[in-house]
């Protein structure tokens, strides 16, 4: 039980660090767009790594 007398102050210290980190993320604009990044990761271009059908560049399909 005595361990708590040390662990809890450490917990408070960690909390302070987390608050500071959070304030930093807010200041650096990481909360400006809360929806975009979630989608962005799904639309990453890994096409060069995945060989699949793509229209050849230069031969654009016309009307």
């Amino acid at each position: 039980m005595e361990a708590l007398f040390m662990l809890i102050p450490i917990a408070i210290g960690v909390m302070i660090v987390v608050v500071i980190a959070f304030v930093y993320t807010v200041r650096s604009g990481q909360y400006d767009d809360l929806e975009g990044p979630a989608w962005r990761i799904l639309m990453d271009d890994d096409d060069p790594l995945v060989p699949h059908k793509r229209p050849k560049p230069g031969k654009s399909p016309g009307e």
């Binding site: 975009g36 989608w39 962005r40 639309m43």
Partner: peptide, 10 residues
């Protein structure tokens, strides 16, 4: 939608 963002950025 999010794809519009993708399209514009690319």
């Amino acid at each position: 939608c999010a794809a519009c963002v993708w399209l514009n950025e690319h």
